[in-house]
Design a protein around this nucleic acid. Structure first.
Lengths: 194, 194
DNA sequence: CTTGTTCTTGAATGGTCACTCATGTATTTT
DNA sequence: AAAATACATGAGTGACCATTCAAGAACAAG
């Protein structure tokens, strides 16, 4: 009976995610999204009840589901070890140094822009941090078992530090995208472990 | 001859700084500043040509000049060593855990919200990061000389890492103000050195 | 083909934004 | 006291914001 929808909601979310990522939540207007997707305001609001904020929260979830795993790469595998951990950090650095990577991480941006006033957004960020910490803990535990890192390293504690380090990397990289500095940070973070 | 100004521009900047700090640049309206200072739009614009953005850049400079030295405390002294460095991190953590400290650092927020699109703002942030790095380098060098940290520690490199760590601490603290996590990060950052 | 249901469209709403400007005011010099 | 000067006031500007809604359109079931 009903008329079928003429657009793919996930495609809309992909575009919305990119805009929120590049410009931030407040700086992205509904008109931006209308232009980016070709979907008119009425359709947007009927497909995403709750309007802009819903679009944003769904974009965050989509980022978590699509972009984050791609960035994590093999670090997400249960057998990941020191090289995968290092690979993740190297990937972050090269992202920050490329023109397309200057936007940093949507979840870090969200932590700063929205976490204090939007607890649902903060929860998505916390989930991301927890997942990252868990991947890193596993990798460190594996690396310790194989002797790639010193036995004195506490996987859980070091993982917490490494999570903070990569968030900090993103902040520093956004203000000062200098490869020398960013690589020095990563190098020093890893000299501790070996 | 002229009629004297009835308000103190620095007092206006103090209020503007607080608003930008707590709410961010975009989320702070001129009307917010008018309400906070009692100074009407016309006077605001004549005292700060360039409008909102000038007010913001001046607020950043004022933050750098007034708030940052207070947070740095004794870490800024030439004789600072390991305990001053640790004191700085402990201060960050207790700030993040207090209700008034939830806003984090204006310069970190600026790095995320404005650095990509406003190079003048980014420059202020870079200046702050450089100053922080220099204080930490000095403290680490002093600490190494007195044997408080291992001789194998590279002051310049470790300082870059510690700068990133404290930026990361701010991001993590904003999404997840959990003392256990934040203290674990600082503890692990310092186990490397001793 | 008719009817029912959902979708699309885009103009319209009321609010807020950063910013300006004409008018009036306070102070100092002459 | 009068003139000159810079400041204070706050209504006003046009632009943009998120959101709504009435009207038309497309499809499926009967």
């Amino acid at each position: 009976m009903p008329r079928p929808r003429e657009f793919e909601p996930d495609a809309v979310l992909d575009q919305a995610m990119l805009r929120f990522w590049w410009q931030g939540y407040r700086a992205t207007s509904i008109e931006d999204l209308v232009k980016a997707t070709g979907v008119k305001p009425g359709s947007l609001y009927s497909a995403f009840p709750g309007g802009k904020r819903t679009l944003f929260l769904r974009s965050l979830e989509r980022y978590s589901k699509l972009v984050v795993p791609q960035k994590l790469g093999e670090l997400a595998a249960p057998g990941a070890s020191l090289s995968e951990l290092r690979g993740y950090f190297d990937g972050l650095v090269s992202d920050l140094l490329s023109p397309e990577g200057r936007q940093g991480c949507l979840l870090v941006n969200t932590a700063i822009e929205n976490a204090a006033e939007d607890d649902e957004a903060a929860a998505v960020v916390r989930g991301h941090l927890a997942r990252l910490e868990q991947c890193m803990t596993t990798a460190l535990r594996n690396a310790r078992d194989t002797g790639e890192v010193r036995a004195s390293v506490d996987p859980a504690g070091s993982a917490k530090l490494l999570v903070a380090t990569c968030q900090g990397l993103m902040v520093v990289g956004k203000a000062n995208p200098d490869g020398t500095v960013l690589r020095a940070i990563v190098d020093n973070a890893f000299t501790v472990l070996a």
